[in-house]
Design a binder for these strands. Structure first.
Lengths: 135, 135
DNA sequence: ATAAATCGGACTGTTGCGGTACTCATTTAC
DNA sequence: GTAAATGAGTACCGCAACAGTCCGATTTAT
């Protein structure tokens, strides 16, 4: 099963909650309460999102996190990249110019790239706002 | 990193080898030799592919495996489904009508489906033959 | 009928991820 | 200036899924 990690799943829920209160700075514990997710996990995800400039943080008393972009401008590709690393369907991607550990160069080297690109595009086309839309 | 398992990667290499000798029945050990992959792994993959009717097996002396469809009619979606299970980007897919383990229904329930469908389509559009094409 | 060759399914070890806890750095209210 | 509140960073543990291994079932050539 090609599935993205729970972390990404959680991230969407958290971001949706933040978007619902757009403009407000919300603390990690507050978000954890609202989303019913375990606080340490929420905190971890928020840090990752901050590091990748998807949200911004404010320290000190009454600190917390806030969106920097509107939900329309946050796409799934960026989210997944932030939490799970680069989007690629196999280890044998073009970037690794060396041969695999196998005795000869894998004949499939680089062949997955078109697929990867297609997937990347599919994910870029979905915004957080769309994910939040009614069923 | 969204990545598919090595198994799928290997499967493509193996199928490419089989396609190169289309029509011929090839034993698991023979294919392992040609692809330089560990035989038990090759064997395991061949079993999975057989179960999903992507190839067919022949027992007894001079037995082995052979393609049932032409490389043009084998797409990546079928391959990945056979080896890694259904293509879905999250556990919270439409099919599970129950709520998550969280106290309330996840607000994102079913929202990933459009993305999943887009990915499925992207993968269906790539045939084994295309993967075998020259670099 | 026998035996060799091969497929088929169950089993096990290991790696990576999800989840947690702890400590340090920073900011602001008083 | 001090202390409280909050985010940032690091390190750790348990579980689950995967990669790899083995032995039994089945078929066919002789």
């Amino acid at each position: 099963m090609i599935k993205l990690s729970k972390m990404t799943d959680y991230a969407v829920v958290i971001l949706a909650e933040m978007a619902a209160q757009e403009g407000n700075v919300q603390s990690a514990s507050g978000l954890a309460n609202h989303t019913k997710l375990p606080e340490p996990t929420v905190s971890k995800i928020l840090k990752l999102l901050t590091k990748h400039d998807i949200i911004e943080s404010k320290r000190g008393i009454n600190g917390g996190y806030a969106l920097v972009k509107s939900p329309t401008h946050i796409n799934m590709a960026a989210l997944i990249t932030a939490l799970d690393g680069p989007i690629a369907l196999t280890a044998c991607v073009e970037q690794s110019t060396e041969c695999c550990e196998r005795s000869q160069c894998c004949t499939m080297k680089g062949k997955w790239n078109p697929v990867n690109i297609a997937m990347q595009k599919a994910l870029e086309d979905v915004s957080l706002a769309q994910m939040m839309g009614t069923n």
